[in-house]
Amino acid sequence: MNPTAPAPAPTPVTAPAPAPLRRRRRRGQRRKPVFAIAVTVVFFVLLYLPIAMVVLFSFNSQKSLTVFKGFSLRWYEAFFHDSVLLGSLGMSLEVSLVAMAGSVVLGVALALGLVRNKGRLGAYAGLIMMVPLITPEIVTGVASLLLFKGLGITLDSGTVMIAEVTFSISYVTVILRSRVAALNPEVEEAAMDLGATRWQALRLVTLPALLPAILASAVLIFALVFDDFVLAYFTTGVDPQPLAVRIYSAIRFGVEPTINAVGTLMLAGSITLIGLALAIPRLFGRRGGLDLISGE
């Protein structure tokens, strides 16, 4: 479920290609791999077609999900008049915001502590923050459900928030850890030589340097949590339910075209957020944001 897990660290996207060698080739041109390119084209078509179908039929004037009759916004209208779905939207936004704030605060602190803490605590923390990354969400969902029931906590938006924070901390920490490790600790020490306390050095020197990565991970977590279904499904109460859980029930027990409209809006939202997460490091004049996803 996570792109940031044990993938070996890739080199920066801008790795220099041995271009001169290629040009020096004696016989013939470097052939284009026709087969690989054909597979890639088919892959892209199949990757985007399902999404295109959802978007297209969200504008269908008829109830049909197979025949497009004409353009209309009636399903969007239906969504904005559906108080249950709007309640779910509100809950999802609330859960995502809280989970984002909570996991960023805990995750950034953990990343800082992990990198600088060479003791046994650091080793233990480094180990347990990796476990969620290799645990399927359904296991995390079952475990959270059992814990909440065991502690006698009523399932509602609060339990979803707790579970989502738990799920998200690892992502924040993984993203931030390499950034923290790349910082030059001498800059912090210089600040302290100039009279800053350890805390001031952290707040005024280290955190500003980490800001792009922190913002990017915050946006990423918001998008992941907003779209998350499995954990929400296991930890939510009956009413209200997060939007993803409503979508699940709607798809499973008879599809209303309204779902296409909701799906399209969610697509637009996530794509905007991910674009933002990729663009943030660039905006700060750093390397491209893709290494964030490919698991540096």
């Binding site: 602190a109 992990l114 650091g122 476990v131 814990l147 924070v165 738990t166």
Partner: peptide
């Protein structure tokens, strides 16, 4: 300070995950 920074996340993960 690094210990204090590590602790909250570690405790959280220990309780809610492990």
């Amino acid at each position: 300070i690094w210990t204090w920074l590590t602790l909250p996340g570690t405790v959280w993960m220990s309780v809610f995950f492990i």
